[in-house]
């Protein structure tokens, strides 16, 4: 799927930050025209989100990212999976994630989880926050308008 800025007749670029989907249901992807700066958001419903999940890829990810996490889709989707599977939980040297925040980010569909992590981390860094909790994640969602 590609998006075209009609006034500029230019391809709109996927924005890999500023994304905070509602867990396992809806997804919002942002696209921006490099020429005029106009942004749009593509909103998917639950069924569309599920369909993309099947591919086991990450929006805006790389080939290396797609293959580096063994059983990555199952790790993020099995309701009662082993802890060893879930090692992909977010880590950033100077920022701590509460258990609840880790669980919430783990519930974000696999294919946009990295983007969601980046959005939350960037928001936390901008505010000088060192502990990411569920409240902060709510704030991020509020801020990015999703």
């Amino acid at each position: 799927m590609k998006f075209l800025c009609i006034p500029c007749d230019e391809k709109m670029e996927t924005q890999v930050d500023g994304i905070m989907p509602e867990e396992k249901k809806n997804l919002a992807m942002k696209f921006k025209c490099k020429k005029c700066g106009h942004s749009i958001a593509m909103l998917t419903n639950k069924f569309e989100t599920e369909f993309v999940s099947k591919l086991g890829v990450q929006m805006g990810g790389t080939a290396a990212e797609a293959t580096e996490a063994p059983m990555g889709v199952m790790a993020g989707s099995l309701a009662e999976g082993k802890d060893e599977l879930k090692k992909g939980a977010p880590t950033e040297e100077d920022i701590e994630w509460t258990e609840e925040a880790k669980q919430r980010i783990q519930k974000v569909p696999f294919f946009v989880r990295n983007m969601a992590k980046k959005t939350v981390l960037s928001f936390a860094k901008d505010k000088g926050i060192t502990v990411i909790d569920a409240k902060l994640m709510d704030e991020v969602r509020e801020k990015v308008g999703m």
């Binding site: 996927t14 890829v57 805006g60």
Partner: peptide
């Protein structure tokens, strides 16, 4: 050109 920045094709090929 490209796939809109989602890199899905590249990733599906890698898988």
């Amino acid at each position: 050109a490209g796939d809109g920045g989602s890199n899905i094709i590249e990733q599906v090929e890698a898988l």
